[in-house]
Amino acid sequence: MSRDDDLTAGHLQELRRGTVVLACLTRLRTPDYGYSLLESLDVLGIQVDANTLYPLLRRLEKQGLLVSEWDTAESRPRKFYRTSPAGDDLAALLTDDWDRLTASLHRLSEGQEP
């Protein structure tokens, strides 16, 4: 029973792995800071741990897909992230691929032969 649960969780994790990147790049077209991004993704049903998300944001920033700046206006400094033009292009490309995959999977499950 718990082995089946582990198996399911593992497959779900595999399937969702790349979607967090796409969600971040899409969502951060509007600038936001880390924890707020986490919560808004959670509300949308895209679950990701804080200790996964923060290193991911940093990695995307290193790859030039996000840009960041520190907002020091409030009581404590917060790091705001925003999707860069390169990140925007990648998000469009990934979205197209996602749509194509969704269509393909639907065709498969409806039993249509190519």
């Binding site: 800071y33 880390g34 924890y35 804080a50 923060y54 404590r76 917060r78 790091k79």
Partner: peptide, 14 residues
């Protein structure tokens, strides 16, 4: 350090 502090404080605030 700045990044992790931001992360922790965000989580605590929430």
């Amino acid at each position: 350090e700045l990044d992790i502090r931001d992360l922790i404080e965000g989580a605590v605030e929430a």
